[in-house]
Write a protein that binds this DNA or RNA. Structure first.
Lengths: 111, 111
DNA sequence: TGGCCATATGGCTATTATACCATATAATGA
DNA sequence: TCATTATATGGTATAATAGCCATATGGCCA
């Protein structure tokens, strides 16, 4: 049976959201994002930071860019990436909130 | 070469965060979370909502529970799930913020 | 122009995620 | 106890992701 139009619209809204969440769902990308929140950095610097192959980091950056989370600006030979959105604070708070609640729950079990 | 202790600690913090983000990175799970923010629901109800196999929904719920995002309570034959953390609002705001900025950027290109 | 540096992309493999089906488990009531 | 209903789990096929290597691309300077 075909999905009703309203259900289909709701589904695609969740899919759009999930695409953003997926971009945030990798430790290297989280590391990159937090570094870029301090200041723009070139790929080489981020490659050092992450400690993976340059091509791997480049692909992570392409993915973050595709999600609209970062933007790039070429300066000579180097490409500098910077955070594009100003609303990641809520995300970090959410994540840290969950982690601290999980920790509390775990401690309650041990006690 | 071995990673320095500080770098290792930072990495594992990002991995913990990424585990939470991964749990949020699927449209069905986002749909489930938003539904559960309104009220607790049993698996059967969520199965109808999501429109996937019952076993699939059950696995999504197990994953959300494992991440510490929801909790379950058995009531007779049924199991009711509810949102455990109170900090998802920041997440939704973050996601919607990104989506609306992406939309703005897209419109600017067309103009 | 030719060589060099930084970055991006294609190709491949290994791992992980997702879905469904079949079936196990748990609780209830006849 | 047995059948029934709700949920969870194991198996398995397929798709998506992530990593590295090799190489292409783009810009700079001799």
């Amino acid at each position: 049976m075909a999905m009703k139009p309203a259900a289909r619209a709701a589904r695609s809204r969740y899919e759009a959201r999930a695409r953003i969440a997926k971009a945030l769902a990798h430790s290297s990308r989280l590391m990159i994002l937090e570094a870029l929140e301090r200041r723009p950095m070139c790929v080489c610097e981020l490659t050092d930071l992450v400690g993976a192959d340059q091509s791997t980091v480049s692909k992570h950056l392409a993915l973050l860019k595709q999600a609209g989370l970062v933007e790039d600006r070429r300066d000579g030979v180097m490409v500098f990436y910077s955070v594009k959105v100003c609303c990641l604070k809520g995300f970090w708070e959410c994540i840290e909130g969950v982690l601290s609640e999980n920790l509390k729950a775990q401690q309650a079990v041990l006690r």
